[in-house]
Nucleic acid binder design. Structure first.
Lengths: 261, 261
DNA sequence: CGTGCTCTTGAACTTCGTCAATATTTGTGG
DNA sequence: CCACAAATATTGACGAAGTTCAAGAGCACG
């Protein structure tokens, strides 16, 4: 049973969508994508049972990362990509003079480390925002297997391409939108991804701080906080620190689509 | 001989780095990467003569795009990626309410269309900023060939990954930098890429308008114009409409690295 | 040799950042 | 389990950076 705060609703934690994970975490032996509940969201999206069988052996191990820990760091040698099993990550790049940019938040089923292929070294830091576990996918093995397995090859290309498309969307957000629009777009994206994973689309607990949200959206933490307060005042959502309840999704959507209405 | 304007220095136009292009443009027959002068900048980077021979047939045709014309449009069916042979492109995405974001400028040797793999449809517009020509690389053929040709497979992955890394750099720029820093970073990136193509790193003609630069950097055209004027006044460069001469590259670099010095 | 289009520049205004004070929550060790 | 310290979040007042609006100058193309 989860601990609850007096007078507060129970904190929803990330449900474990993957199969038999509590056992697997203790016995990190052979794990097959075929028996993973995340397969509809992860690398094997859209594969048949037959296809899935061929993935056997691609994921050779798992890795746990405690909250605040690094999955990998900028500059480290690249040799594997990672699929989030449980937990939540952020990736960030930084400039020479120390300014940071969060380039993304990753949840169950999403891939990390694609930036490393370009030069055999990682170009960002990947940090767990809560205790997390990932599947380790050897990149060499992935290349080998995808040479004889067309479906995997195509799927992998699609995932890289999707990351490029996503990045372009973030550029549009950073280059054109005002604070309210950015935060609304961010929240809608977040709830949409949570919903795809079986969570409520209206009630959520943020896994990241105001600073981290700001560092993703190109805003300062005070602006993020103020904008949350404004959304609250406007009746769009209840905001209580990191606990959110969306009251007017359409209202948020309208903010994103239309600058001044 | 190039046409020159009276009293003005000759306008440097894009030199043709590819082999026998003026003939090829008229006779768009078989062209091999092996005999293309762009091979050191394009898909075949780092390949041996042996490798290059295996690329034969990958580029099945060429295409010319007049200034202002679309190479492809958002929503169009995706079936090929394109390598710029001559000329200059921009890619842009736009939001529902019509706001635009230029996601990149592409010059000789750079690839266009990678965004299309994600969903078999293009997610941006690619528009020529001057009369241009591209090599058409059938994506199906590229997938086929890269299944039996490890070097190509790896090279293609690297290029996609590099695009992701580049995009993250743009996010950092859009999320953290002030107008002067953005423009300085943009100009340094541009001159560096021009230099890699055999142009002077200090003297260039912009192929894009102030509006387009602003739409890339998340600034309004007036801000871009004012910032150019400031760079001029500060002795960093000569600015005469689109004709630029960098006088103090180190000064520009210092602007990028260090917010206030 | 006009007529677009592009660019420059000024002035008022808006948005967001900065600085500062305070509140709330979380984590830690007694 | 409580108390204290550290981290996180809220809110206000003010200022800086960039946008908007407007007018005019410079080029480029037919």
């Amino acid at each position: 049973m989860l601990k609850t705060l007096p007078g507060a609703t129970p904190l929803p934690t990330t449900p474990d969508l993957s199969a038999a994970s509590s056992v697997a975490a203790l016995q990190p032996l052979k794990v097959a994508c075929a028996s993973c509940n995340l397969r509809e969201l992860c690398l094997p999206v859209g594969m048949t049972a037959n296809d899935l069988a061929r993935l056997d052996g691609l994921v050779d191990k798992r890795r746990s990362v405690p909250r605040g820990g690094h999955l990998f760091r900028n500059g480290e040698h690249f040799e594997a990509i990672y699929a989030v099993r449980t937990g939540f990550f952020k990736t960030c790049v930084s400039s020479e003079d120390g300014r940071e940019q969060v380039t993304g938040f990753q949840m169950a089923g999403e891939l990390l480390g694609l930036d490393g292929i370009s030069s055999d070294h990682h170009h960002c830091d990947a940090i767990a925002l809560e205790d997390s576990s990932v599947c380790v996918i050897s990149y060499a093995q992935l290349e080998n297997l995808s040479r004889e397995f067309t479906v995997l090859q195509h799927q992998f290309h699609k995932i890289m391409s999707r990351e490029i498309v996503r990045d372009h969307g973030v550029m549009l957000l950073l280059g054109n939108m005002r604070a309210e629009e950015r935060l609304a777009a961010f929240l809608l994206n977040l709830t949409q991804r949570l919903e795809a994973r079986g969570f409520s689309a209206s009630s959520l607990v943020l896994r990241m701080t105001r600073v981290e949200i700001g560092t993703y959206l190109g805003l300062k933490l005070e602006t993020v906080s103020r904008t949350f307060s404004k959304f609250h005042d406007d009746g769009l959502m209840e905001v209580k620190q990191r606990q959110l309840r969306i009251l007017d999704q359409a209202g948020l959507q309208a903010l994103v689509n239309n600058s001044r209405c």
